[in-house]
Simulated scan of single mutants.
Amino acid sequence: MPEDIFARMTADTRNLVKLMQSQATSSSPDADLVQLARQGYRDIIPLAGAIEEVAKVENYQTSSTPAIDLRLYRPQVSVETLLPAIVYFHGGGFISGDFDK
Rank of each mutant, 00 (worst) to 15 (best):
M1N: 02
M1H: 11
M1S: 06
P2V: 02
E3T: 14
E3P: 11
D4C: 04
D4I: 06
F6K: 04
A7D: 13
A7I: 04
M9I: 03
T10A: 08
D12A: 15
D12Q: 13
D12P: 11
R14I: 10
N15C: 00
N15G: 03
N15L: 06
L16V: 12
V17E: 07
K18V: 11
L19W: 09
A24P: 01
T25L: 12
S26D: 11
S26L: 08
S27G: 02
S28D: 09
S28I: 00
S28H: 07
D30L: 14
A31C: 08
A31M: 05
D32S: 06
L33N: 03
V34T: 10
V34I: 07
L36G: 02
R38A: 09
Y41I: 00
Y41D: 06
D43A: 03
D43G: 00
I44R: 15
I45D: 05
P46F: 06
A48W: 03
A48T: 11
A48S: 10
A50V: 07
A50Y: 01
A50L: 09
E53W: 00
A55I: 00
K56P: 02
V57F: 07
E58S: 12
N59Y: 13
N59E: 14
Q61S: 15
Q61K: 13
T65A: 12
T65P: 04
P66T: 03
A67T: 11
A67N: 10
A67E: 15
D69M: 01
D69E: 12
L70W: 09
R71C: 05
R74C: 08
P75Y: 08
Q76Y: 00
V77W: 07
V77K: 12
V77R: 13
E80A: 15
E80K: 14
E80D: 15
E80Y: 10
T81N: 03
T81D: 04
L82F: 06
L82T: 11
P84A: 03
P84I: 01
A85D: 02
V87G: 09
G91I: 03
G92R: 04
G92H: 08
G93S: 07
G93T: 03
F94G: 06
G97H: 13
G97V: 12
K101R: 09
